[in-house]
């Protein structure tokens, strides 16, 4: 373990402050809790919120998995996994089923998560209304009043103009029918997985200094309209490697002649599927 730094890098006073914020976040599902985010040795915007949440909950008994875009071997996921191996000396894994804590950027694993797992999201912009109202003081008031007319209007205008809702990722959700929440920039495809998930979901936004949470089994509803129900979009293909027609796919450009293949974004899921078929 790295000498000169505390277990999991953060000092104990910082962990306590973050732990208190996490508990209040769990008690008020979907509500953003301001917290005194620290400067981390990784840049803001690169997962410092998720890292601070993970550092505050992780212990020697945990096994950590880190994914970025669904993959364990993307450079930023590797960098974060290395950070925790270095400062907390915890076991790491690439297997979803073996992990007790999964820190993620932009995806929810395909395999259903269990009660004994915690999913930690890295969040760039925690405020779901920020494109419609950039002023935090104003959006705080809207959340207090559960005044989300602005978002409904925006989605409705999309439908009027485009014939469908124009949001394909970071698709806003209502948590327990009270707070409008950003699911972080996961594809809308993943939104249904948040609904009544057995695992605890924690969200950390370091630069914006907010923590929020969705407790297990909490209703999470993607905003929609009766005549335009929410649709989870994926590329209409099978994975080239494992043949899955259910998983979320990355489009890989293979040449400059229009050649494309589609592969699972969740690398662990894809490997598991291939092993099962073999």
């Amino acid at each position: 373990m790295e000498a000169g730094y505390n277990f999991a890098y953060l000092d104990e006073a910082t962990k306590r402050m973050i732990r208190r914020a996490i508990l209040k976040a769990v008690a008020i599902p979907g509500h953003q809790i301001p917290f005194g985010a620290r400067e981390m040795p990784l840049p803001y915007g690169w997962g410092t919120g998720g890292i601070q949440v993970t550092a505050s909950i992780i212990g020697p008994a945990d096994t950590l998995k880190v994914i970025d875009q669904g993959a364990d071997d993307t450079t930023n996921a590797i960098s974060i996994r290395r950070f925790f191996a270095r400062v907390a000396d915890v076991a790491t894994t690439e297997r979803t089923e073996d992990a007790s804590i999964i820190q993620t950027r932009h995806r929810i694993p395909e395999a259903p998560l269990r009660e004994d797992q915690i999913l930690v999201y890295q969040v760039p912009m925690p405020e779901p209304l920020f494109r419609l109202e950039p002023r935090i003081a104003e959006t705080k008031r809207m959340h207090a009043l559960a005044d989300y007319g602005l978002m409904h209007t925006k989605l409705y205008e999309d439908i009027a103009r485009l014939g469908r809702i124009g949001t394909a990722y970071n698709y806003p959700v209502m948590v327990n029918e009270r707070y409008l929440m950003s699911p972080s920039p996961i594809p809308a495809f993943d939104n249904p997985k948040m609904d009544r998930m057995p695992a605890l979901q924690l969200f950390g936004a370091g630069r914006e200094k907010r923590i929020y949470a969705v407790p297990p089994y909490t209703p999470v509803r993607s905003l929609d309209f009766e005549d335009h129900p929410f649709r989870a979009i994926r590329a209409p293909h099978a994975c080239t490697l494992c043949n899955s027609t259910a998983s979320y796919l990355d489009e890989v450009v293979t040449d400059d002649q229009g050649g494309r293949v589609y592969v699972c974004s969740d690398t662990d899921f894809c490997r598991t599927e291939q092993e099962r078929a073999a």
């Binding site: 505390n6 277990f7 104990e12 962990k15 306590r16 909950i57 992780i58 020697p60």
Partner: peptide, 10 residues
Amino acid sequence: PVLDAQASFR
């Protein structure tokens, strides 16, 4: 103090 607090927090 570090690891016991972590276990209690969980």
